[in-house]
């Protein structure tokens, strides 16, 4: 499996969100990320390092440097 995680840089810790490097503040949670990424959390799901983070755990799940996060929703398809 390809390691798509970014190296930490001198500018601070970074994670990958939907395939793009993204800065992460110390102590930031999944809930913080979702609200900055897409505002409303309706119709959204989050995977962190290929595991679903249940909505009920967004506020308590802290992001770690080099996490790989996918934030998904519905698109026309099928």
């Amino acid at each position: 499996m390809r390691d798509s995680r970014p190296p930490d840089t001198e500018q601070g810790a970074r994670i990958v969100v939907n395939g793009e490097p993204h800065p992460v503040a110390p102590g930031a949670t999944v809930a913080d990320l979702v609200s900055s990424w897409c505002g409303s959390p309706t119709g959204i799901a989050v995977a962190r390092n290929r595991e679903v983070v249940p909505r009920s755990e967004w506020a308590t799940t802290r992001l770690s440097p080099r996490d790989v996060v996918e934030i998904v929703t519905a698109a026309a398809g099928g």
Partner: peptide
């Protein structure tokens, strides 16, 4: 049916909103 895809902050909401507005269940 809908597909599961990365959130595009510019375009999100469309499909689900239309399905809900028409009382159509999501598969």
């Amino acid at each position: 049916t809908v597909a599961v895809r990365r959130v595009d902050p510019a375009t999100r909401g469309g499909v689900l909103d239309v399905l809900h507005a028409h009382g159509v269940a999501v598969l």
